[in-house]
Amino acid sequence: MSEEHPSHLQLSYQPSLPMRNGKTFMWLFLSTEIMFFSALIGTYIVLRFGASAWPKPHQVHLVEWIGAFNTFVLIVSSLTIVLAMEFAQKNKPVATRRAILATLLLGCVFLGVKGFEYKAKFAHGIFPQKPHSRMYERPDVYYKQALEMRLRLKVSGEDDTDAKSAVDADDTVTKTDPAKDAAADQGQEDAAATGKTVQQEMYDFLKNSDLSDKDRKRLKEDFDFVVDAVKSRGTTDEAALAATMLAVSEKIMPTHQGDSDEHHVGLNDAFGDLKLPVVIPGGNMWASTYFLLTGFHALHVIVGLIVFAILLPIKFGPHNYGVIENIGLYWHFVDLVWIFLFPLLYLF
């Protein structure tokens, strides 16, 4: 009697959460994604506020309104995918397809704008790492050396890989003190000889360009200033060198926003082939974090777009709207990440 089971208690085994398995797994995946992106964003915040120097957005050619436009594009695409799900539930396959297509196109617009932004960075020598990166942290003797190297190479027409080995070789020479003066003299003669040729090339370029007379005159003076600064004998006064090199960098790529009515054009902007190095304190760390964060986000966008392209030919209705709900959850998450990235990267 005592071992008899109570007959009124009926236990039932529930094998899963009360929802579709696809949705369960999408949410599980998203919870790992939350941790992934919060680690990346958290690292960015910690690095950014722990850094002694961090570039202003305009120093690294970030255009705020372009970022805002991309935010708008992603928000609209979030709306279209949620509408696609609603249409599918209401058994409107044509409207569903149109909404998915709109989301796909908006995602492409986002990536296109991102690509345009990346191109602008690359054009200004902002890369996540050397040898392509032309950013220097400090206006010191190494920066001066890099400028001299670049001006010399500009004439000899060697490519960038040779430039790197040449710079490395030069480093070893100048680090030993007795050889330093001799090397400096040699470098000066070289710069004097080649500088003239670069100057000639610059003058020819300015003559043939469609710049205004005022700009042409200013750029010519700027360029002469840069060449003179590079040619000048090395000073032991570090502060004086830093001041000169900062002024040089300012002429190559102006970091202040134009307070005058005209857009201030630097030497690198006017004469794209020059590709002179510039001083941006904290620029290399900025580039690493920027390209990592936006790159991972762009990868997620690409994955979303591939799925949208696959879904496009399928006829959706109330029986299979769950597929759109799943990819919609993913797409909203991609939008969510951008909601945080936009102010952090563009406005902070």
Partner: peptide, 16 residues
Amino acid sequence: AAVAVEEADNHEQPHD
């Protein structure tokens, strides 16, 4: 270290 330019100017000692 990569310090801000104004900080770098304050350092009197040469670093090389």
